[in-house]
């Protein structure tokens, strides 16, 4: 079982765009995503909430228009941000999260979620906790945090954890698995998330 995320494959740069309040480009393996945060900004009347800021998320695939799969990514990212950002500090405003996919060779959701968290940290927006996503692969017998070389994968798990108590904020799965495998995957990703949070720290302190 591989429990070590190959750290060297992460690379990130903060503040690469000038217009957003916070932006980050993150690439892991060959998957690259740019995320930008605007907020708090003026809100459309339709989406105005009187007790908190509303979070909007726009996801752009690398080519063409966003499809229904991208809508699902958007909903995961939006709900994760809603849980993490202290929205009640800015009532009657909006926080806009924009994500542009540049390259996709797997683990896209976790790369996008991590890029959004780095952009939030760069924007300096108030957060209750940081969030980090980890993808884990199962071939029915073994679990691995890195995509296995052989193509036979039975299930893929994506978990988003919070940085304080390491609880599950979001979970998305593909394929068939047993309850025991699910528990194993959560534990493995939970330990893998430490490396993601360590990486955030490294990026911010450098």
């Amino acid at each position: 079982m591989e429990t070590e995320l190959t750290k060297s494959t992460f690379s990130c740069k903060l503040g690469i765009l000038s217009r957003p309040d916070g932006s980050a480009i993150l690439s892991k393996d060959n998957t690259t995503v740019i995320a930008g945060i605007y907020g708090p900004i003026e809100v459309k009347l339709q989406k105005l909430l009187i007790d908190k800021a509303s979070v909007e998320c726009h996801y752009r695939p690398k080519s063409g228009l966003p499809g229904i799969e991208d809508r699902m990514h958007e909903s995961i990212i939006r709900n994760t941000c809603e849980a993490s950002l202290v929205a009640s500090l800015h009532p009657r405003t909006a926080v806009l999260v924009a994500i542009q996919e540049l390259q996709n060779s797997g683990q896209l959701i976790s790369c996008a979620v991590n890029a959004v968290c780095l952009a939030c940290l760069h924007a300096g927006i108030d957060m209750k906790f940081m969030f980090g996503a980890v993808t884990c692969f199962s071939n029915g017998v073994e679990m691995s945090l890195n995509p296995p070389a052989q193509t036979h994968i039975k299930a893929v798990f994506v978990f988003v954890f919070d940085s304080t108590e390491k609880r599950v904020i979001a979970s998305h799965t593909k394929g068939i698995f047993t309850k025991e495998q699910f528990e194993e995957a959560v534990e493995l990703c939970r330990s893998g998330s430490d490396q993601v949070f360590d990486y955030y720290k490294k990026v911010l302190t450098n």
Partner: peptide, 19 residues
């Protein structure tokens, strides 16, 4: 067997509770 555990964000849950 399980074929989908879909939690699109929201308040964090301990893994034991999910199980």
């Amino acid at each position: 067997e399980l074929c989908c555990v879909h939690k699109p964000g929201g308040s964090p849950l301990a893994p034991e509770e999910l199980v």
